[in-house]
């Protein structure tokens, strides 16, 4: 059963040229999806709509058959989806541990030891306690992206959305990130959707969608 559905989705910014044209896709839990295409094809716009960072104007996005527009966007972003950005978007004045705990606080998670849970998540993405307590700015790009993944997982979101998660990383780090994301789908039953240019990512995802001029080529 699909957890996320896109139905007849059209989108344009300020009523100009269509960025997305009649998109229909279904995503299931336990799978990792890849959305590929040239720059300007509409990949990031599609991911922004799935993440609730943009509002749909024409067409629907359904989460468990519920229209996302009917859910508070803040609640949707803090509890339903976990977002991983290409440029990490961590809060640099905090430590990795604080970044993860802050995400839990925003999601309103209670009745658990947040520090313990955050350290466990950071450990899962290979960030040890020492690094977890150092400033984010002292981390490498690969480490920052792993912290971003831990933050996305901290709210127990069922859907993980990753926008070019390996775009700023070298090959070794890219492999590591892809493995983590793949495990999230296959071992933790998450629905992982990755937007990327990378051939390496393309080879490791369960299903590939190609976007060209706002349309899905292989639907």
């Amino acid at each position: 059963m699909s957890i996320l559905k896109i139905k007849n989705l059209n989108f344009s910014y300020n009523n100009n040229k269509k960025v997305l044209n009649d998109i229909n896709i279904e995503f299931e839990k336990g799978k990792i999806y890849g959305i590929f295409g040239k720059s300007g094809a509409g990949k990031s716009t599609l991911l922004s709509l799935l993440a609730g960072l943009e509002k749909t104007k024409d067409g629907d996005i359904l989460y468990n058959d519920m229209d996302v527009d009917n859910i508070s966007r803040e609640k949707y972003r803090s509890t339903v989806v976990g977002i991983i950005f290409q440029s990490y978007n961590l809060l640099y004045k905090y430590t990795p541990l604080e970044n993860v705990i802050l995400s839990m606080n925003i999601a309103g998670i209670k009745n658990i030891n947040k520090k313990e849970k955050a350290l466990e998540l950071l450990n899962k993405v290979h960030i040890n306690e020492e690094k977890a307590n150092s400033k984010v700015l002292h981390l490498s790009g690969g480490e920052m992206q792993r912290v971003a993944i831990a933050r996305a997982l901290s709210t127990s979101a069922e859907i993980i959305l990753a926008d070019e998660p390996t775009g700023n990383l070298d090959k070794a780090n890219e492999d590591e990130i892809i493995t983590i994301l793949k495990n999230l789908a296959h071992k933790e039953d998450k629905c992982v959707i990755v937007v990327s240019h990378s051939e390496n990512v393309k080879n490791m995802v369960d299903k590939v969608f190609y976007l060209e001029n706002g349309k899905i080529l292989d639907n």
Binding site: R77, S78, L90, L91, K93, I106, A107
Partner: peptide, 15 residues
Amino acid sequence: YEIGVLRAIGMTKLK
């Protein structure tokens, strides 16, 4: 930037 990140991960405008 901080406000952008906080809002992206779901913090409300009011908070």
